[in-house]
Each structure stands twice: as structure tokens, then as C-alpha cells.
């Protein structure tokens, strides 16, 4: 990914730009020479399994950690040399809650507003606005320790927006929330991206989240960016449709199908094959034909539109690590047979 600054007049179109950004913890490389850029007003997603280096990257970009190597600019300001300017331009919602639970929701927002130098009038107006945005007006005078997890998360998102940041960092914004709350938070994120023109950098390990929210995603694994593109392009790279099948002799069938030119790609996994094709429904009979000629019995087969799950699987050769553990018992099933989404 080239990282030249594209500018029209004074406006910087690349809001975040990193160059070989690296973080090592006692010799262990958590983030490994990553270079990427995020454009103005887009929603950019960092997608990766546990321990991929997402949070570490955010901490470096938000000036909380010193990079071991490399550099980054935010809104044109260097994250090492112009920390205060960077800090003024960013809002952060951390992965772990960062609220003072002994204060009320309104007091937490007031604390934030003053730390960011908002004047009295602005404070009042802005606190009312962001509370409305996340539907917490009624709870504003309740101590945060009495909030539910989802309410806390909404308050944090509201707080991140208080000072009109150019970029809002959201580290796993919906981790551990119920389906309804997740939906609601997605809507808030879309709304503030649209209405307040906030550029959004979020991390997630939920495919559906990245799929629904992001204009572009970067897939990160073991500290390295594997691929970065728009969600549509990534899906297209895999094929318009994904066929997943399991059969008696994976190796042989996989090799044979690899010779077919109408198949964009074949990937063999432990217990199943995935094929990227066009017009998947029409290809199923052909595949059966080929298998029968080889005397191979197909146990299951399905066609569907590709998701970011497939993208991840395609680029990393495995399903998300944390899901692997959780789904250890049903490992033998191809991913589409597992319950997905909500």
C-alpha cells in the first residue's frame, strides 16, 4: 500500500498514515512493520483474531504507546513529535471500559469536555447532543456503576464524540453486547460518520460487523496486515459465490478441481474445501459429475455469497482463532453450517 499524501488545497485526505509502524514487547513483535492509510470520512475496520495487534496499533496511534520503530501521522501531525495536537484531534473508545463509575454519566461527559477545553456553553450544548445521540438522556444523572454494559458502551461512544474529533477510534465497540445493543451501536456509528463527518477507525473480530459498517477493511494477523481493500473488492477477489463441500477424499478432489479454469480458487481446509466461482448454483451438478468420475462421495455441499469470514479464511488459511476454540466440537463442519449472525 503506497502512502503518499493526497491533498486538495489544505485538506488532507489521508487522515491516518503509518509507515512501518512496529511495536515490540521484550523481543516479541506485536505489530510488525505495518504501513497503511485511512481516508477522510471513511469507516475503516481492522479485522483480526485475538492477539493480532489491533489494540497495540490503536494505542500507538493514540499516543499511549511509543512505537519501537516506524512512524505515523494523524491529520498531518506526527504521533511522536506532536502528541498534543494529535490528542486534540482524536476520540478514543478503548477496548476495556474507561469510565469513572463513581461519577454519573453527565459528570463523566463533563470531565471529558473540560479536559478537552470546551467552554461552558459548548459543554452544555454538546453534552445534551451526544446524550441524545446514544439515547441516554434519562440516565444521565445516575452513577455509572449502576449502568448496564451496553449503556456504559454507549456512554463511552458519546464521550468519544464530545470534542468533535476528526477521527474516532473504536476498539471492539460491541464486544460482549447482545444482538439488539450491537445493532443500535452500529446505527450510532453510521450516524456519526454521516452527520458529524467523523472518520472512524474501528477494530473488531466480528465479520458481520466489519461487513456491515466498514467501507474498507484491513485484515491483520500476528502483527502483519495481510490484505487491505474495500469489503466488496475483497469479496469479489474470492469469487462471486463460495461453494463449500466435504467429501470422502479431499486431497484428490481438491487437486482435480484445481485444474478447472472456471474455478477462481480452491482452498483445502482440514475437513472441507472452499471454491470461489461464478453462478454457483449451476456449478453444483458439474462438481458432482467430476466427483463421481473419481469415485468420490460428496457428503455435503452448499453455495452462498462470500462474507468476510471467507475472506479471512482465504487469506489466513484458517478461521478466526478465537472461534476455532469456541467451536472446537463442531470443527468438522464447514463454517456455513455453524450458526452465524443473529
Amino acid at each position: 500500500m503506497s502512502a503518499e499524501i493526497i491533498t486538495t488545497g489544505d485538506r488532507i485526505l489521508e487522515i491516518i498514515k503509518t509507515n512501518n509502524l512496529t511495536k515490540k514487547f521484550n523481543g516479541f513483535t506485536a505489530v510488525d512493520h505495518i504501513s497503511f492509510s485511512v481516508k477522510k470520512e471513511e469507516i475503516f475496520g481492522f479485522l483480526g483474531p485475538n492477539g493480532a495487534g489491533k489494540t497495540t496499533t490503536i494505542k500507538m496511534l493514540t499516543t499511549l504507546l511509543h512505537p519501537t520503530e516506524g512512524s505515523a501521522e494523524l491529520s498531518g501531525f506526527d504521533i511522536l513529535k506532536e502528541r498534543d495536537k494529535v490528542r486534540k484531534h482524536i476520540g478514543v473508545v478503548f477496548q476495556d471500559p474507561a469510565l469513572d463509575t463513581e461519577l454519573t454519566g453527565r459528570e463523566n461527559l463533563d470531565f471529558h469536555a473540560r479536559m478537552y477545553g470546551l467552554d461552558k456553553e459548548n459543554r452544555k450544548k454538546r453534552i445534551a447532543e451526544v446524550l441524545k445521540l446514544v439515547d441516554l438522556e434519562e440516565k444521565k444523572d445516575v452513577l455509572v456503576k449502576k449502568y448496564s454494559g451496553g449503556m456504559k458502551r454507549r456512554l463511552e461512544i458519546a464521550r468519544g464524540l464530545m470534542h468533535y474529533p476528526t477521527v474516532l477510534f473504536l476498539d471492539e465497540p460491541t464486544l460482549g453486547l447482545d444482538a439488539q445493543t450491537r445493532r443500535a451501536i452500529w446505527e450510532y456509528i453510521k450516524k456519526m460518520n454521516k452527520e458529524e463527518k467523523t472518520t472512524i477507525f474501528l477494530t473488531t473480530h466480528y465479520m458481520d460487523e466489519a461487513d456491515y459498517l466498514c467501507d474498507r477493511v484491513g485484515i491483520i494477523d500476528r502483527g502483519k496486515i495481510l490484505v487491505m481493500d474495500s469489503t466488496d473488492n475483497l469479496k469479489n477477489a474470492i469469487g462471486n459465490d463460495v461453494i463449500t463441500l466435504s467429501c470422502s477424499n479431499l486431497d484428490e478432489l481438491g487437486k482435480r478441481l484445481g485444474e478447472e479454469s472456471w474455478i477462481k480458487n480452491v482452498k483445502q481446509h482440514n475437513t472441507f474445501l472452499t471454491l470461489g466461482v461464478k453462478k454457483g448454483e449451476e456449478k453444483i451438478p458439474i462438481i458432482f459429475e467430476i466427483a463421481r468420475n473419481l469415485n468420490i462421495k460428496i457428503k455435503s455441499i452448499s453455495v452462498r455469497k462470500p462474507t468476510l469470514d471467507d475472506v479471512f479464511l482465504y487469506f489466513t488459511g484458517r478461521i478466526m482463532r478465537d472461534q476455532e476454540k469456541k467451536d472446537a466440537k463442531i470443527e468438522n463442519l464447514p463454517p456455513m453450517l455453524r450458526s452465524r449472525g443473529r
Binding site: T62, T63, L64, D84, K85, R87, K88, I90, V92, F94, D96, P97, A98, L99, D100, T101, H112, M115, Y116, G117, R159
Partner: peptide, 14 residues
Amino acid sequence: QFGFLQEVLVAPVS
């Protein structure tokens, strides 16, 4: 421990 320190440290305040 309660994470609030991050909120303080990321603010544009010396």
C-alpha cells in the same frame, strides 16, 4: 485497574 487512567492520559493535557 478500572481503565479510567487511559481516558486521562489520552486527553490533550500535560
